[in-house]
Structure formats: structure tokens, C-alpha cells
Amino acid sequence: MTERTSVYRIFWRLPLILWQGAFFVVPVAFLAVMTFWLVKNYRMEPDFILTNWEKTLGRGVFWDAYWLTLWRAALAAVIATAIAFPAAYTLAFRMSERTRRFALFCLIVPFFTSFLVRAYAWQVILAEGGPVNAVLGSIGLGPYVMLNSGFGAMVGYLTLVLPLVVIFQTWGLSAIDRNLIEAAWNLGATPLRTLVRVILPAARTGIFVGAIFAFILTFGDFVSPFYLGGSKPPTLSILIIDTTKSGQQWPRAAVVSMMMILTLFLTSAAALRIAYRGRG
């Protein structure tokens, strides 16, 4: 049997290369090429011009959106990490295997519910005359305006990413060798110092990976800022949709996309480096 030319081997290896090559790598590469194309009379023409880059990066509205998106994604990653940790800790250390498995399954459920419908439900729940304000009103508070603000967008981001962050952190925490924790107690560490000196460093990878995913998802999300954040000021994703859907300025939307991909790549690479630093 000649390993090199085996039809069998190629049959199993090729589908991914062909499909993801033709419909993932090529479209993204095409997006990069498109940033240099010319738009004339609402039609794209192959060209090599820098106008799209100059026009996009030269506008204040782009940079406002860029910093807003970056800031919100970073904030959401930090908040989600902090909120998720006590829950992941409880799941990993205070629950039976059965309960933990069931809870993790429940946390997967939201991924299979339309995020749009959930955002719409928040619109209703948080509305000025909605249930939350009704409850607050009955104890003499409010009504508060919660929608169309950074707060509204954050509620959306957290709804999107919290389950995932809890899952990653629980995995990270469950994988810690219990002997390490007991060894810390045995050497005189109080429960709090054990948490800081042993559990957090040992679960570092899971915590960072959770935060990275939270960052990536919020950075690209358009539903939360659009339906709960009020779409003004726009985030990068809203900018892309506006530029694409109104008129045919696809190349400029592609420039925004390239900037997003670059930012995500650099941020994730840096964060992963920290997450795996000092690991074999």
C-alpha cells in the first residue's frame, strides 16, 4: 500500500480544504482585495486605489466607533469574567458531578435560542413601562431609562457571553488537581489565599480563554448595540451594516472589516500568550 498516493487518505482530507478554502479563506481574502476596488455608478470595478482606506480611516466617525467597540468589548470581557467566576467556582467545587453536568448542559441551551428573540425580550423587560420598572415602581424607585444606552448594550453582551464564559471557567477549574488545593491548605494557606495563590494561577488558561471568547463575541456583535444600545453612537458592526445596506459602498465596509480582523488577531494572540505563558 503506497501511503503517498492513497485515494482513501485524500478522500477524507480534501473536503475540508476545498470547502473552507473556497468559502472561508477565499471570501475573506476577497474582502481584503475588495478594499482596493473602485465604486463607480453603484458598481464595483477591479482596481488598485487607496481611496477606500483613506476615506474610511480619515473619518472621525470611524475612530469613534473603533474606540467605542474596543472599550465595550474589553469592558464586557472583564465584567463577564468577574461575574462568571463565583458561579464557575460553585459549579466546579461545590456541586456533584451530576449537577455540574446538568448545569453545563443548561448553559449550552441559550446558544440554540435566537439571540434576536432574546434581545427583543430584553427590550420589553427593560422598557420604561416594562416589568422591571413596574417592580421597581412598586417600591418607589424609577422609572429608569435602561434601553438605548451603554447599560442596555451591556445587558445584551452579557446575555450573549456569560454562559460561554461560565463553561470555560468551570472546565478550567474542574481540571485543577485537587491535591494542589489541599497542598496549599496543608502548607498554611487560608481559603482566600488558596484562591488567589493557587486556584487562580492554576485555572488561568480557562479564565483567559473565556475572556478572549467574550471579547471576540462582543467585538463583533451587532444585535446588542443595535437593539438594546440604541445604535448611536454606532459600533463597528453597525457601521459595516449601514455602509453595506445603504448604497453599494462594500469596499469601505471591507476596510472596517479588515481593521476588525486585525484588532481581533492582535488581541487574541497577546491574550493567548499570557494565558499559556510558562506552560510546557
Binding site: 472561508f24 475573506v28 471576540i216 467585538f219 463583533g220 451594516i241 462594500w250 471591507a254 476588525m260 480582523i261
Partner: peptide, 18 residues
């Protein structure tokens, strides 16, 4: 890699390429 790509970007890339 595909799940790490923001859907808005993937949507635009798909639209342009298709």
C-alpha cells in the same frame, strides 16, 4: 477558525464573494 470570525464580517465576505 470560522467561529471566531465576527458574523457581520463573514456575512459581508460571503455576500461579496457569492
Amino acid at each position: 477558525l470560522p467561529p471566531t470570525m465576527p458574523l457581520v464580517i463573514l456575512g459581508l465576505a460571503m455576500l461579496a464573494w457569492l
